[in-house]
C-alpha cells in the first residue's frame, strides 16, 4: 500500500539532502542580493567615502593627489585666517532660496488637485495634460522657459510690460531676478508632481468621514483643514521628500538657463561643485569634493528625518 504522496516524497529524501538544500532558506537571500548589493556598493556607497577622502586632497584628477588636510574646508567656509569663499556663500544662500520657494509646489499642487478632483467628461485627459510638464526633461523645461523669459520679445516681458513692469536685462539677465526665474521654471514640473500625488491621495479620502463632517456643518476651509488634509498626510510626506530632494538636486535648469550667471548670481552648491571640478578653469577635484561633502551634510539632515519616518512605519508594520 502506498501512503499519501504529498509529504512522503520530501521525507524520503531528507537524510541525503545536500548542504545547500539543508541551508537553502538561509542562503537564498544572500545569493539574490550579491549582484544588486555589489553594484550599489561600487557605484553609490563606496564613492561617498571616496569623495570624503578626496576632499582632504589637492588634486587635478590626473596626477598625484597631495594631502592638504582641512585646507579645502578652511578656504570654503572661511575657517581659521581665511575669508569665506564668496562663490560658496552665494551658492549656499541660493540653495536656501531653492529649498524654501520650491516647497510652494506642495500647496500649489494641492490647489490644482482640488480644482481637478471632479467627475466631468474628459477630466481624465485634463489630469494627464496638467501632469505633462513633469514628464518632459528639465533640459527642455529650461529651454522653454529661457525663451519665455527672452528680453524684449519673450512672452513674459510682453505680459509684464502690459502692466508697466520692466526688469532690466530680462529676468535671466538681471542678477536680482535670475534665480527666482529659474526656481519658477522648476516649480512648474514639481507642482505637477505634487498634484498627481494629491489626486491619488484625494481618491482614497474616506467618503464616510467627509459626509459625517458635512452633517456636522463643516465645509470649505474648515473641512479642508480639519478633515481632508490630515487624511492626505502620506501624500504630503512624499511630496515633501521629493520636493526637498528636487530642490537640492537643482542643476539641469541652472546649467541650461544661465550657466551660473549673470555674474555667478544663480550658482547653487551642486552647480558650483561641478564648475570647480570639471570646468574649463581647470580640474579642482579636491575642492569640488569638499563642496559636495557640505551639500551632502545639508542633505543628510533631511535624509535622517526621512529614514526615521520610514523606520517608524516599518516598526508599525511588524
Amino acid at each position: 500500500m502506498s501512503v499519501s504522496p504529498a509529504v512522503p516524497t520530501t521525507h524520503a529524501r531528507q537524510p541525503n539532502r545536500g548542504w545547500y538544500r539543508r541551508n537553502e532558506i538561509a542562503l537564498t537571500p544572500w545569493l539574490f542580493l550579491i549582484l544588486p548589493v555589489a553594484f550599489f556598493l561600487t557605484y553609490v556607497v563606496v564613492p561617498i567615502g571616496q569623495s570624503f577622502w578626496i576632499s582632504f586632497h589637492q588634486w587635478d584628477g590626473l596626477g598625484e593627489a597631495t594631502w592638504v588636510g582641512m585646507d579645502n574646508y578652511n578656504r570654503l567656509l572661511g575657517l581659521g585666517d581665511q575669508n569665506i569663499d564668496r562663490k560658496f556663500e552665494t551658492s549656499f544662500w541660493n540653495n536656501i532660496r531653492w529649498l524654501v520657494l520650491y516647497l510652494l509646489a506642495i500647496p500649489m499642487g494641492l490647489f490644482i488637485a482640488l480644482f481637478l478632483n471632479q467627475t466631468v467628461t474628459g477630466i481624465r485627459l485634463y489630469k494627464s495634460l496638467f501632469f505633462f510638464p513633469f514628464v518632459i526633461s528639465q533640459v527642455v523645461v529650461g529651454l522653454v522657459f529661457s525663451w519665455f523669459y527672452l528680453p524684449n520679445v519673450g512672452l513674459f516681458e510682453i505680459i509684464t510690460g502690459f502692466f508697466g513692469l520692466e526688469i532690466r536685462g530680462g529676468v535671466l539677465g538681471n542678477p536680482d531676478t535670475a534665480t527666482y526665474g529659474i526656481i519658477a521654471a522648476g516649480l512648474w514640473p514639481q507642482t505637477a508632481y505634487c498634484m498627481i500625488l494629491y489626486l491619488t491621495g484625494l481618491n482614497a479620502v474616506d467618503s464616510e468621514q467627509v459626509e459625517a463632517a458635512r452633517l456636522d456643518g463643516a465645509k470649505g476651509w474648515r473641512m479642508l483643514w480639519f478633515v481632508i488634509i490630515p487624511q492626505l498626510k502620506p501624500a504630503t510626506f512624499i511630496a515633501f521628500v521629493v520636493t526637498i530632494i528636487g530642490a537640492l538636486r537643482s542643476f539641469d535648469l541652472i546649467s541650461i538657463m544661465t550657466n551660473g550667471g549673470p555674474f555667478g548670481s544663480t550658482r547653487v552648491l551642486s552647480f558650483y561643485m561641478f564648475e570647480e571640478s570639471l570646468s574649463e578653469f581647470g580640474f579642482r577635484m579636491g575642492y569640488g569634493a569638499a563642496i559636495a561633502v557640505v551639500l551632502f551634510f545639508i542633505m543628510l539632515g533631511f535624509i535622517v528625518y526621512f529614514l526615521w519616518s520610514m523606520w517608524q512605519d516599518e516598526k508599525g508594520a511588524r
Binding site: I48, A292, F296, M299
Partner: peptide
C-alpha cells in the same frame, strides 16, 4: 537621496 555631486 544622496546628492549626485558626492558621487561625481
Amino acid at each position: 537621496f544622496v546628492p549626485f555631486q558626492i558621487l561625481m
